[in-house]
Structure formats: structure tokens, C-alpha cells
Amino acid sequence: MNNHLDEKILVQKALDGDQKSMAILVETHSDRIYSLAIKLMRNEEDAEDILQETFMIMIKKLNTFAGKSSLYTWLYRIATNLALGKLRRKKIVKSEEDIQNVSEASYLGKDIQNWKNPMEAEQDQSVMTTCLEHAISKLPESYRSVFVLRDMEKHSTRETAKLLAISESNVKVRLMRARLYMRDRLAENMQCVEVIQAS
């Protein structure tokens, strides 16, 4: 799909009952929605549930899509809300205390003098991705959602606050803590990989 107009036509055709257009809309956006879901859920089964539920809602509620934003933005909000709801129900709050201790008062985080720049590590892409995924999986949910939306999906502070229904200052605090946490976990993971590869 090349532009907004094409999308508008496809949406209209899908609303008129054209199954092929509906399938094209699903096919166009499913990879990115799955990618978002896996980043938030850190679990393939849950991510697949979010994917399916998102598109079931799309089919059911497409007539309420006003077309003010792109269809992807609309689907993105649906998927994010579904993922956050699921995470809340699962009560994934592990190691919440650890990260809460990273406050402005200790904002340097720990051992910064020994910090290793992950960009300088000569690892292949799959190792880097594994390190990153491992570090993200250790982030408590309330921080992970801010981190994924703000830093990885590049939403603004305002958009992130709106998506998560929290204040902008809360987004900023959580982001700061999440970044410190990620920095320290990535540095640790890089060291782990080096040990594994050397053994």
C-alpha cells in the first residue's frame, strides 16, 4: 500500500463486504502489529493472541474507524491497549522494586565507571538482538511499555502518556529509570555473552 488514499479505498471496499480488501489490510499490518505485541508481551503465545484479537476488533469495528489517523495508528492503539490489559491481568510486576530504587538521587545508576559501550562490542546481529531481548524481558511491565513505546517505537512523551493513560511526568520518570536499567542490563549481558563465547 503506497498512500493514504489507497488505504482509504481498501477500507471502504472492506466495509462494503469485499473480503479480498479486508485480507489485504490484515496482510499489510500483521507483521508490525505482531512485532509490537512480542515486544510488549515477551511471549509468542500471548503475542499471537494480541495479533488475532486486534484484527478481530478491526473487522468488527472498522465502521467506527474515522480515518483521521492512519489505519496502522488505529490498530496500534488497539493492540497496545489489549497488550497492556493482558499484562495487568497477568500481574507481571517482577523486580519492580529493583528498578524503583533507580531514582534521581542515584541517577548515575551503578558502576558507571565500568560501563561498556555495547556499540563497540563486535558481535553478530543475532547475538546483539538476543542481548537486547533478554534485557527487555527483565524490565518490569510498567517500565517496559513506556520504554517500548517511547524509545523503540519513537512515540513522543505526549503520545506515550495518552496511550498508557498516565501523566507526561510519569512517562519521563519511568523512561529515565528504564533507560538506566537497560543500560546496566545490556552491559551485564554483553559480559555474559563474552564469557559464553570464550568457554
Binding site: 558507571i112 555495547p118 523503540m152 533507560r179 538506566l180 537497560m182 543500560r183 545490556l186
Partner: peptide, 12 residues
């Protein structure tokens, strides 16, 4: 360190 970390995960 924070800027490099952000760069790292955006790149990956």
C-alpha cells in the same frame, strides 16, 4: 552511556 544505549537498541 545513556545515549549509546538508546542508539544500540534503536539499531538492533
Amino acid at each position: 552511556s545513556i545515549e549509546e544505549t538508546v542508539k544500540f537498541y534503536r539499531k538492533n
